[in-house]
């Protein structure tokens, strides 16, 4: 823009542009359609190119490898125990289960909250939210596309972790069958199926965490506030769940059944608690997402 020739170029280019084509009956520009705004692929690229996304997913892939290497180094020193922790080095599935168990209380929750809590709030922080909305992307559609992509990324993390653990566990400790503390053995094929159940249940039970983070994320311009707030509330719920005086109230705490996935390794699989957990998580998620939508559709977007 500093050279005159370039400036003139701009004006020539502008003058040579055709006049605006006639608008559609709904007043929109030619070629625009509400159903085509903010495609999932575009939103995925916008999120995927963030260093944060790449680091989290890479971290989830590397964590089991590092853990397996440490376990393999110290294996000689470890005495055999019967808790599943002691069985972690028993094989690929045992190790994958150990990794999932060790991560399910906090790591997975933080990852889900991070993706789902930050997705709207970070747009607000960058001030890009208002441009998306004015472009225009319908508010409901914006939430839907962002939720699908952020939860999809969270699920990707949820799958990467055990898959990486399976591979790392298999390489370090062999691809044998899963062993239980009672001495019984679950054949490898069956154990993989059970592991798939575990991941499936975690995906459903994390709906609540995702919805909570998302709900907080549409309320704030501070991404860390939404993520931290969601993690804090989940932890508070977990703590309340330990208070036996609360009695039956504990059974409707959203995190009450968060550990029910271990039932997938019962013989036979015990479904009842996982079903309760799925119902509870879905119910909380439905209410929280409805509130998030309600808030966002009416919100004055100031940033």
């Amino acid at each position: 823009m500093s050279s005159t020739s370039t400036s003139r170029g701009v004006h020539d280019l502008l003058r040579s542009a055709p006049p605006p084509p006639s608008a559609a009956p709904d007043g929109s520009a030619a070629g625009w359609s509400a159903q085509r705004t903010l495609p999932l692929r575009v939103e995925l690229v916008r999120q995927w190119k963030r260093r944060r996304t790449q680091l989290v997913l890479a971290g989830l892939a590397l964590f089991p490898v590092v853990l397996a290497a440490l376990f393999a180094r110290n294996r000689d020193a470890a005495t055999g125990g019967t808790r599943f922790v002691d069985l972690a080095t028993g094989g690929a599935v045992n190790f994958a289960l150990f990794v999932v168990f060790a991560s399910s209380t906090l790591l997975i929750i933080v990852v889900v909250a991070l993706f789902c809590g930050d997705t709207v709030a970070s747009e607000a922080q960058w001030s890009s939210l208002k441009y998306l909305l004015a472009s225009p992307v319908g508010r409901s559609r914006l939430l839907r596309q962002k939720l699908v992509v952020s939860y999809g990324l969270a699920l990707t993390g949820l799958v990467i972790l055990p898959v990486s653990a399976l591979i790392a566990g298999g390489l370090f400790f062999g691809f044998g069958p899963a062993r239980t503390p009672l001495g019984s053995v679950i054949p490898a094929g069956e154990a993989l199926f059970r592991l798939a159940i575990v991941i499936g249940y975690l995906a459903v039970s994390m709906l609540f965490v995702a919805a909570l983070a998302f709900f907080l994320g549409v309320h704030t311009d501070a991404p860390l506030g939404a993520v931290g707030g969601a993690v804090m509330l989940v932890i508070v719920s977990t703590i309340l769940d330990q208070v036996e005086d609360l009695g039956p109230v504990r059974e409707i705490l959203p995190t009450h059944y968060i550990g029910a996935w271990v039932d997938a390794f019962n013989d036979p699989v015990v479904w009842s608690d996982m079903a309760r957990g799925a119902i509870l998580s879905t119910a909380y998620a439905a209410v929280l997402l409805a509130l998030a939508w309600r808030k966002f559709l009416r919100k004055d977007v100031l940033s």
Binding site: R83, F84, L87, N94, L97, F101, A178, T180, P181, L182, S184, I186, G259, A260, V262, D263, F265, N266, D267, P268, V270, S272, D273
Partner: peptide
């Protein structure tokens, strides 16, 4: 026969 032993609150078989 769970890999994790009995979990309190889980329905018994």
């Amino acid at each position: 026969a769970s890999l994790f032993g009995a979990r309190t609150g889980a329905d018994p078989q």
